[in-house]
Every structure is written in C-alpha cells, then in structure tokens.
Design a protein around this nucleic acid. Structure first.
Length: 317
DNA sequence: TTTCTTGT
C-alpha cells in the first residue's frame, strides 16, 4: 500500500469494515471507535462522491432506522457500547439492532456471530410483548445475492433457529421482532435440538441473570471438519433452498457473567446440530474457549482484563 | 415456558 494512502485508509477502516485492517481497529477502545466513526461519518457527509450508503459496516455502529440526514447519528446512551463492552469477535459485516449486534457471513447466508447483553430486567416476562405477532423476514439490508429467504427454509426439514434468542429480547415488541430477521437465523434440527437441548442451554443462560448482574453472550455457527473414509479431514455441510443457506454442523455459545464485585466468569459450549438426548447434562458440551476461537476464526472478549476473570468453565483460575 | 413446522 502506498504511504499517502495509509492515513485515508486508517480513517476509512471503521466505516468500511475492511477486515484485513481489523487489527488497527481492534486496538482502539469502543468509545474511540464510536467517536471516530461519528467524526468520520460527518466528514464523509460533506463528500457526496464517497459511497457511504453502500458501505457495509457503516451500519455497524449506527442504529437501524436512523437516516443519515439526521445530524445526531450516535445516541448519547449507546446500547451497542454496552452490548459490545468486552470487544468485537471480528469486524466483518457488523450490523447493530436495537438490542443485539451481529456479524453477517455472506458466504453462509447466516450470521458469523451474534452478541447480546442480558440482565434480570431485560429477560423478565413482559405481557406487552407477544412472540406470536412476530414473523420471520428477510433482512433487506443484506445484498440480495447473500440474503436468506423464508422459501429457503420451507420444507427443508430444518427449523429457523434463532441465534440471538427471541426469549432474550422481551423488553420491547420491537426488540423481539428484530430477532426474526433471517440474518439472525440458522438452519437447526428442530425436535431434539432447537426445541430441546439448545433451548435448554438458552434458558440456562437467561437463568444466569438471577445470580449475575450482567451476562454477555456470543452465539454462532460452526462448520467443523470431520474425518472421512479415506482418513482425511473434510468440512462438509448441507446447503438449503435456492439461496444455498449453509446448515452449520455445530453451534457455540460463549458466556461471560459479571458478579456484583465486577469479577467475571466465562463458560463456553459447543453443541452438534443434531438430535441430542434431553438427559445429557449441559456441562458435557463445555469446551475451552480457545478451541471455539480457532474453529470459528474469532476472538472472544478481547478486552477482558485477565485479572478480573475468576473462572473458566467452572474452574478457578 | 419456549422453541418451532405444517396443514387448513
């Protein structure tokens, strides 16, 4: 890269989401990112030649349904800062919703990860919120080449399984509705997985808010290699519908809980996307977070001060 | 309680 271009690229990296430069962006604090994003967006607005509407990660740090015409792009109390407090697992195709953040994997037609922040208040039952009123819908913010449609899932034999669980977003009707965008959905085995053991894991994570004041959850698909008859390893996954939506072989959850003293406990799980017996204890699915990072190509909770981490998968450090 | 699909 030519030297004179470097400064411009540095300025653009937060807006354009050039993944190869994520190291630079990753070193900045979230606050700096937002400040910088806000500043650069304003700069860009005065330069109509730059294609700000077609860049992907411009959507990342700017809440949906905010138009670029309004001067106040970043609200003061930013929910996204709260959700992403401990770092972004990656910076590819990041987009934020009102109560969760996701990174979209265009090739797989589903998310690479979704991030949520849960509290006792945010998951408590709310009569005003009705799941039955929600419809699964294509995410129109994704380019049609890479977008999943309801027809892809129809008669596929798979459930439209939430990554950010609907049950985690009952504070407002608007919040739960946004979890039904197909960018937050992956093909999941229904009976025996989505409706059973995976749901059991989701309920367990919600229950953690009873003992911890803050719960941070990262969820995503995995496509793990498997040994075939010739002894070699292959990554093999089914694709469904005319969009070829990838069917993940596994799903992960990495959870960080913060207690009243600010001490942090981490738990990480991998479950195969297949029928799992209901009597299998959830602890059986615990795996070291490093192995999920390697398999997924992600880095979780990058910004956690290791001194604050007291437990990993139940083991004291 | 929450997670869904299919058929009418």
């Amino acid at each position: 890269m030519r030297l004179h271009a470097v400064n411009t690229v540095k300025k653009l990296v937060l807006i354009s989401g050039i993944s190869g430069l994520s190291y630079y962006a990753g070193r900045q604090s979230i606050e700096n990112k937002l400040e910088s994003c806000q500043k650069e967006t304003k700069n860009l607005l005065s330069k109509p030649a730059l294609p700000i509407f077609s860049t992907v990660s411009a959507a990342a740090l700017i809440p949906r349904n905010e138009t670029f015409d309004k001067p106040a792009i970043i609200p003061k109390e930013n929910r996204i800062v709260q959700i992403m407090r401990y770092g972004f697992p990656s910076l590819d195709n990041v987009r934020s919703f009102d109560d969760f953040v996701l990174s979209y994997d265009r090739r797989m037609r589903t998310a690479a990860w979704v991030f949520e922040h849960l509290t006792a208040e945010s998951v408590k039952h709310n009569d005003a919120v009705d799941r039955a009123k929600c419809d699964f819908k294509p995410d129109e913010s994704i380019h049609p080449f890479f977008r999943a449609d309801n027809s892809d899932y129809k008669k596929s034999g798979y459930d439209r399984g939430h990554l950010a669980a609907a049950g985690n977003h009952k504070r407002e009707q608007r919040h739960i509705e946004q979890t039904f965008y197909l960018s937050n959905i992956s093909p999941q085995v229904g009976v025996g997985f989505n409706r059973d053991s995976w749901n059991r894991l989701e309920r367990y994570v919600r229950k953690l808010t009873k003992t911890f004041r803050n719960v941070y959850v990262c969820t995503g698909p995995l496509y793990l290699p498997r040994k075939e008859a010739n002894g070699k390893l292959y990554v093999k996954y089914e694709v469904i519908g005319s969009s070829n939506v990838a069917v993940p072989t596994h799903f992960f959850k990495v959870v960080v809980c913060e207690d009243a003293d600010g001490k942090l406990e981490l738990e990480s799980y991998v479950m195969p996307n297949e029928v799992i017996s209901d009597d299998t204890p959830l602890e059986n699915f615990r795996v070291p977070p490093e192995s999920i990072e390697r398999a997924a190509g992600l880095l979780f909770f990058d910004k956690i001060n290791r001194k604050m981490l007291s437990k990993i998968n139940g083991k004291k450090l």
